[in-house]
Design a protein around this nucleic acid. Structure first.
Lengths: 143, 143
DNA sequence: AAGCGCTGTCAATAACTAATGACCTACCTG
DNA sequence: CAGGTAGGTCATTAGTTATTGACAGCGCTT
């Protein structure tokens, strides 16, 4: 698999849209044209040719994704997911703070269970989750 | 996160190489130039400018990946992994066939354990793995 | 101070990309 | 058979991208 071509192929918004359309189901030429509101046949022809080995014409004569086409969409999805890893870290951090703040404010912190169970457990979790986020997944909070 | 820019940025082989270099560790201008055997400073300058918000100059004055830069590499890796999903399916299929062929050829198939345990278990596994591969991960064996 | 390496910028140009619109064939339908 | 729709191709052009090579400031060393 050659990634140079792959990212070249998906480096235009219209082509990503075409891939998304075809991932739903194989379609005919005019169908894609209508769906994506493309005026000119030449333009669609141009982009379909650029998508070259990401799409194919299947046995029914419809445009469909090839294996490489699905790989391309998977790359798009991977990029999509990235932001969520950061957000879910913040979510975990907020939960950690809220739980402990609640315990401290309601006086539950006088109970031995807080010091023996709640605090160690939530702390262990946030430490583990931080390590996983920053070391294993290499997320950066600031650009 | 804007994917149009992102895939635009990684649609040139040299830029992917730059990202890979910077993912190992932050580097200086001339260091990247030497590592990637780039003759002209202008060329590196051009591509670094294209990588725009995928890289940044850190506090030590070195070029380093931003969060978006790591997202981009993650997209590249996702595309890389794609081929292996197909290969690992074949590997599983071969293992399934070998185990069962071994049992049949060595006469172990006369044992009730083969029919009660080995065959059901390996069959269940290959059915599950096939479903996961073709339905959930949408892998296509033929382009 | 001269020379070298680092860190770039800039102008020019070749090559490529995106978009348009004209054109074409084949098929169907009234 | 005229007209519409499907399914494209092709030439042209404006705009963008990639590459080269010249140049320049800064800091260090000899």
């Amino acid at each position: 698999m050659n990634h140079d071509d792959l990212f070249d192929a998906i480096s235009h918004p219209l082509r990503i849209e075409i891939l998304k359309e075809l991932s739903k189901k194989p379609r005919r030429f005019a169908e894609i044209k209508r769906k994506l509101k493309i005026e000119s046949s030449g333009l669609l022809d141009f982009h379909l040719k650029k998508l070259d080995d990401l799409i194919t014409i299947n046995k029914d004569g419809l445009y469909a994704l090839t294996e490489k086409g699905f790989a391309a969409l998977q790359a798009v999805e991977a990029a999509n997911k990235y932001g969520w890893q950061k957000r879910s870290f913040y979510l975990n951090l907020v939960a950690f703070i809220l739980i402990n703040a609640y315990c401290l404010l309601t006086g539950y912190s006088h109970s031995v269970y807080y010091w023996m169970i709640v605090l160690p457990l939530t702390t262990a979790w946030i430490v583990f989750y931080s390590l996983w986020t920053f070391v294993k997944r290499r997320i950066r909070l600031k650009s």
